[in-house]
Design a protein around this nucleic acid. Structure first.
Length: 256
DNA sequence: ATGGTAGGTTTCCTA
């Protein structure tokens, strides 16, 4: 299964990039974040024209997640017990026996802010749900925009970002706690170029100067073998790009 | 400490 995660920062604006990328990369599954599209306006027909089915959980203006797949998607879940959240950030589906959890983790704005407290609470509650989801589904993928750079090597300037949002100790601890549930960061299973990132600020020529962070991730459970994982920086260099690049992994059902 | 850019039922909010 070739699977990818991409924060598109408005699917309406990015639809041409997404359709071109699907045609070129031919993934089995593409998980989108920040679609910023109400369900009634989701571009189902354009996506179907590219050979993909759509499942989505959207809202006006902010957030929004969707999964595009060549195969049927079963048992969609958009809300979890104990998290009464109107923000559309979670979408789980099952494709070919693999449980796929598409997440748009809250940004958190600033360490110490109300949004930061919401982020940490969200991470704890979703983590508890993932633990149960892992017990139900030995073949589990958790992917999307985590808004967490797990380690200093995931940050272009670790000292400037020290204890800042996306890099703070509690955020990194929450990420590690998710790994400790039995998930692997597939990107780090392979040798990677130095300064590999998945997001670059639109400001200050961030992409051209590679002033990025690696905050988009594909985590896989022990029931899945990962054959490769990379960031495709190509779309970030296009005209009118998303500020994120797609992360792509090849998974195979393992022995477990 | 500030600002730069992008998207959105836009004159601020979010990232």
């Amino acid at each position: 299964m070739k699977i990818a995660a991409w924060n598109v920062n408005s699917l309406r604006v990015r639809l041409p990039h997404v359709l071109d990328w699907l045609a070129r990369e031919q993934p089995d599954v593409l998980a989108l974040q920040e679609t910023k599209t109400e369900n009634a306006n989701f571009p189902v027909a354009a996506v179907a024209g590219a050979g993909y089915r759509s499942v989505y959980s959207g809202q006006k203006t902010y957030n929004g997640v969707a999964v595009l797949s060549r195969s049927d998607m079963l048992d969609p879940v958009t809300d979890i017990e104990g998290l009464d959240d109107p923000q559309r950030r979670i979408l789980a589906v099952t494709v070919d026996g693999v449980r796929i959890v598409d997440l748009y983790v809250p940004n958190g704005s600033e360490v110490g802010s109300d949004k930061y407290a919401y982020k940490l609470d969200w991470l704890a509650k979703v983590g508890a749900w993932l633990e149960a989801e892992l017990a139900r589904h030995p073949r589990l993928v958790v992917l999307g925009d985590f808004n967490i750079a797990p380690e200093d090597r995931d940050v272009h300037d670790p000292e400037a970002w020290r204890d800042k949002i996306l890099c703070s100790g509690p955020e990194r601890a929450a990420f590690r706690a998710w790994l400790d549930l039995g998930l692997r960061d597939t990107f780090r299973q392979f040798e990677q170029p130095e300064k590999s990132f998945s997001w670059w600020d639109y400001r200050m020529n961030g992409f051209k100067r590679n002033l990025g962070l690696r905050i988009d991730h594909i985590l896989a459970s022990g029931g899945l073998e990962c054959l490769s994982c990379r960031v495709d920086t190509g779309p970030r260099g296009l005209e009118r790009p998303s500020d994120h690049a797609p992360v792509v992994a090849e998974l195979r059902v393992g022995a477990e």
